[in-house]
């Protein structure tokens, strides 16, 4: 199993991760090693087995879908790196 530079670039694009050429090389090789290591799983008998997404079976407890105002808006806004008044500044979305 080989992971090409093109594949690494495609995954990085999906993950929205800027990688240097050096990083692409390292992650390409390491990802290959990890995936080869994972081939071990092909030996497991999973016919007739349902996937488990959680450790405990049972219902999750969803809250009522009702809007509640966070008590301290300024505490949230103070973490925004670029803002004007109470708005978050972003790069141009539509060219």
């Amino acid at each position: 199993m080989e992971i090409t530079k093109k594949e690494i670039e495609h995954i990085a694009e999906l993950a929205k991760l800027e990688l240097t050429d050096e990083e692409k090389k390292i992650y390409g090789a390491q990802l290959k090693d990890i995936l080869v290591w994972m081939e071990k799983l092909n030996k497991a008998d999973i016919s007739n087995t349902e996937p488990a997404s959680y450790a405990l079976s049972g219902k999750s407890h969803l809250r009522e879908d009702k809007v509640k105002k966070f008590p301290d808006t300024q505490a949230l806004l103070s973490n925004v790196p670029a803002r004007e008044f109470d708005f978050i500044k972003v790069k141009k979305v539509i060219e």
């Binding site: 690494i8 995954i11 993950a15 929205k16 991760l17 800027e18 990688l19 990802l31 972003v90 141009k92």
Partner: peptide, 28 residues
């Protein structure tokens, strides 16, 4: 210089090697 680049660069500069490796593996 663009919104998409902003995401990529912020994440590329902000995350360390093991976090990037796991994001790559997970995304794959």
């Amino acid at each position: 210089d663009s919104l998409i680049n902003f995401y990529k660069l912020s994440r590329g500069e902000g995350f360390g090697p093991e976090v990037k490796r796991r994001i790559m593996l997970g995304t794959y």
